[in-house]
């Protein structure tokens, strides 16, 4: 399974790696710092992406702008996107849902909870990925 994490906070990437290390499945994990880098990464890539973890507030191109780009791109719009953000603002949730984000996960303060949420998310999309590949 291949995951791209679009997030401007490098420490968050550290955390995700920590969580993924504890999983049974092997995950190819890459991290870029904003939406713009995300688009460039996907375009330069020759293999398929199974999941994008997307932050909202980022410099250059934020998560919502990335969603708009992704929706307009034939090669990208089938890639599942899970929002991973600190924002609990209902407006953010509504807007992301309207922009066809597949899920919205709020980063928990408690590491155990945070870890559990990421684990559940990755496991779920891994199952989806396995079923669609079969």
């Amino acid at each position: 399974m291949r995951i791209l994490h679009i997030e401007d906070n490098k420490m968050d990437s550290l955390l995700i790696k920590q969580v993924l290390r504890g999983l049974d499945t092997t995950v190819d994990y890459d991290h870029v710092l904003n939406g713009q880098e995300g688009l460039e990464y996907i375009k330069a890539m020759n293999t398929n992406l199974d999941l994008i973890l997307l932050d909202i507030n980022m410099p250059l191109m934020n998560g919502k702008e990335f969603l708009i780009e992704r929706n307009q791109d034939r090669d990208m719009k089938h890639i599942p996107v899970v929002m991973l953000t600190t924002s609990e603002n209902p407006r953010d949730l509504k807007e992301c849902s309207e922009l066809n984000a597949n899920a919205y996960v709020i980063k928990k303060m408690d590491f155990e909870q945070y870890s559990a949420d990421i684990e559940a998310t990755v496991t779920f999309w891994n199952e989806v990925h396995k079923n669609s590949s079969n």
Partner: peptide, 9 residues
């Protein structure tokens, strides 16, 4: 969140 999470880690 970083302070909280990393002190927990």
């Amino acid at each position: 969140r970083m302070i909280s999470t990393f002190s927990q880690l």
